[in-house]
Design a protein around this nucleic acid. Structure first.
Lengths: 245, 245
DNA sequence: TCGTGTTTTCGACTAGTAGTCGTAAACTGC
DNA sequence: GCAGTTTACGACTACTAGTCGAAAACACGA
């Protein structure tokens, strides 16, 4: 049971919640929070319980299974099988964490044209976390890739964004998570057209250097929703005007 | 370790490989193949090993993790945690299976406008498998939904289709897996434009009732590849002609 | 041999989606 | 007021995809 809890930091990069090991093996390196599965809980409640020791669970906006990491030699000593989770915390919450725990920046995904970040049998990946204990770097990379992939075809943005935000702020979050520029105009148009975003009516005060006050938006839904893909494969009668009878 | 191996049957519906329990509990009901994890293998090789007892592994075109099913009471008796897999077998292979094993038809997904079939923490779902043992009906439903979702934004069709096929045959496979009509013209255009499909040059002989012989196609790639989603979120410089310098 | 029916293929038309750009609006600070 | 900055919004354009119709290629029976 391991959790890779991601957050978009103020400096504009992805961060993961990790704690520094005080003992060998891998002393001084950073490990993901987790623990053993209890007798009367399933893995989902277990990971939330483990997480409660590190951060307030109510601050975690989304949790989902990443996959099982079971390579026999992944940790020294006795065999240990880890069910890894991806957790997301909105960028505006900064939970109090224990002394040995910190937000570590995650290195951006490798090159462009990277292969499918959605395949579960995880091959070797770029080291996403500097000085990661055991195979936790691989798990963090899988989490970062999963976030990146799902931002593109779901409303998962709700889990990394504050409840209300300006379009530019949201754009910055997407830029940090994706690692490449994003058009604010198109982001607003696409997300509002698909009814993932709606204006709150209020406006945000301008920054210190002035500028027109930006309108505030919110995600209409705060649970995961999948959107468009191949239009051909959607049930008929939802595009264009349909056939002329 | 459980595997939901799906296949599109000749009759045009989704089938799952299952074996009939001879002993209580759930005697006579259908269970998914699987077994315990060995000491020197990871879950992926383990599930392939388990599967080898039922079907020839070389016939399985794609395997991926579905998720962990860990509810404390999911099976009677001692606690058992299952890592579930989705396996796919092309529609043209009909492997020899043991006497207690058969392909059971999977009931189609519930209504249209169904919620995200991609969320891992699986809630209650429609009973996809009649007389399923334990929670295996839930697992089959998750597998069927995963297949349906991934057909829309990946080249996963390669795993349910023969190596070579006509567009109509492929259309029928998609119709069976998705549960709604699909346009053959658009399917061909979309899949070829995205370079997922390519013509082999050969043609298939016409059916018994005649008709123009259909051209044969194959998938260019037989490993999972993810395709388009939100165009906004793709790196710039890949659409249209780009900015005029 | 020649139509009839069937199935596939291909092109044309059309509509919707999204990338780009230019301009106006609203605010801060000097 | 004026300059500078940031956001908002509309216009133009290009590409993708849904629909339809006509032609091609075959089997079968008269």
């Amino acid at each position: 049971m391991l959790a890779a809890v991601l957050r978009i930091g103020d400096s504009g990069d992805v961060e993961v919640l990790a704690w520094q090991r005080a003992r060998d093996p891998d002393r001084g390196c950073w490990a993901l929070p987790g623990g053993r599965l209890g007798d009367d809980e399933d893995v989902e409640t277990s990971v939330l319980r483990q997480l409660a020791e590190k951060v307030d669970v109510r601050e975690v906006a989304h949790v989902e299974q990443l996959g099982v990491f079971s390579e026999p030699g992944r940790v020294p000593g006795t065999r240990l099988i880890a069910t890894a989770f991806l957790g997301l915390v909105p960028s505006d919450v900064d939970p109090a964490v224990p002394a040995d725990t910190a937000w570590r920046t995650v290195s951006p995904p490798p090159a462009e044209g990277a292969p499918a970040p959605d395949v579960l049998p995880t091959p070797v990946r770029a080291p996403a976390l500097a000085c990661a204990a055991f195979d936790h770097g691989t798990i963090v990379a899988a989490a970062r890739d999963r976030l990146r992939a799902k931002l593109s075809y779901t409303n998962l943005g709700f889990a990394i964004a504050p409840r209300e935000f300006t379009i530019s702020a949201l754009r910055d979050l997407y830029v940090a998570a994706l690692g490449h520029p994003v058009s604010a105009t198109n982001l607003q148009r696409v997300l509002t057209r698909r009814a993932l975003l709606e204006p709150t009516g209020a406006v945000a005060p301008p920054g210190p250097s002035g500028g027109r006050p930006a309108a505030l938006f919110r995600f209409t839904d705060r649970t995961l929703r999948v959107t468009d893909a191949f239009a051909v494969l959607k049930p008929p009668g939802e595009h264009g005007r349909g056939p002329v009878p």
